[in-house]
Design a protein around this nucleic acid. Structure first.
Lengths: 222, 222
DNA sequence: CGTTAATTTGAGACCATTCAATTTCGGTGG
DNA sequence: CCACCGAAATTGAATGGTCTCAAATTAACG
């Protein structure tokens, strides 16, 4: 994007909104009126099934758009929640839409953003569909680490990790109990250390091996 | 889209290509040069994990674009295969790209198409992550039926169903053996009848109940 | 420092897998 | 038209990964 594009994007009218931990930002079935950019904190998407179980569909880090798709598709098809206390920028659908109409580079950037989103969903289908518990969790940890590094939010082997074990389980299709046992097994093997909301990856190569992690699907080069 | 838009789309230079059953259309890691529209037959996307297991990520029916995302993201992040013998129209990336630049309605239609795709991936994460075998398979059958009806390819309760049980299993994260037993259980309960590549849905309401199926995620109204 | 949330542990049950063998089906050639 | 073939579907039995339920321990927070 050119400087002019960036100025136009930053110049959009927006308002700031804060959410508490676990606060609902968008509910499934609601009409969408605004577009949300995450400024600080973490967020996640989820859907509930008929017996009340929850499946987390993605996690989001600062700098990501949370609901471009909702704003085009009129009605939200999933729930969007803050993971930690967080702050977002709200932009009106119409203002963003006008900007996309007049600025090809911005249009292209948002389009790519949503295509990468889509690629991540595909990898998650594979993760919950065809990997065992250890691999699922290892893969999730690798993905979060790779994305945080790529976004410049973290750079070493130590990360803020605000997920509860129940949330890790809901993202990987496991129960909280089995998630706990699996994390212990990863710790015992010296792959990670995890406590008090801090994750250290002690052996990146081994963790990617266990998690069958190949970051091509993140399309970091685009 | 206006008539003029439609004419412009149909007027794009394209070539026809045939694939045999299980033929590879795109391989993971390959650079993308063309954009593929499925004309006849069925196709599916899949990824392979390190132990050789396969996860099917989506099925596609005639009239759907198969790889808009690949053509924007440069390198394919998954494999694309024909399910049955099929015919596709190949359009050059650049020609389609030019058309999208000049025609907002076409751009919007393709954008919506890929957003619906994305919504379907999200639902599949939920399906394999948080539903048991009966619900997973019932849900898959409901989705295929709903999409075929919506596309006008089928209209009653009887459908061409060219999937093997192994493929149903690979789409739902189950083994072929357990898929077989689960299909028998759905038959025994009078929900479906399935043989020789023909699926009859005998009790739609009961099947949607078992599969926890709500078609909002298909966004058929857009 | 008290209270609630989150993590951890144990034991038993169950859903789905594995492995192997058998039967059925669709297609092909004699 | 029938015999044959490989692929797909089906069956059985044993194994195992994950779940369930419940209780205990530890950590987070006002």
């Amino acid at each position: 994007m050119s400087d002019e594009d960036k100025r136009a994007l930053i110049g959009l009218p927006w308002s700031r909104k804060n959410y508490p931990r676990d606060g609902y930002m968008v509910r499934e079935g609601e009409p969408a009126t605004v577009c949300t950019l995450l400024i600080t904190g973490f967020a996640f998407r989820q859907k509930l099934v008929s017996d009340g179980a929850r499946q987390i569909i993605s996690f989001h880090i600062p700098g990501e758009f949370l609901d471009i798709q909702n704003s085009m598709l009129e009605v939200a098809d999933h729930n969007l929640q803050s993971l930690t206390r967080s702050t977002v920028a709200l932009v009106s659908r119409n203002a963003l839409s006008d900007l996309m109409a007049s600025r090809p580079a911005i249009r292209r950037a948002l389009w790519l953003d949503s295509l990468v989103d889509s690629s991540i969903f595909r990898e998650w289908v594979v993760n919950v569909g065809r990997r065992d518990a250890r691999a699922r969790i290892a893969h999730l940890l690798c993905e979060l680490a790779a994305r945080l590094r790529s976004a410049g939010i973290a750079d070493g082997e130590i990360f803020d990790f605000p997920l509860t074990q129940e949330q890790v389980g809901d993202a990987t299709g496991l129960t909280a109990v089995h998630t706990n046992r699996t994390l212990q097994s990863l710790r015992k093997d010296g792959l990670i250390s995890l406590s008090s909301n801090r994750l250290s990856i002690l052996d990146w190569d081994a963790l990617t091996e266990v998690g069958d992690f190949n970051e091509r699907y993140l399309h970091h080069s685009v």
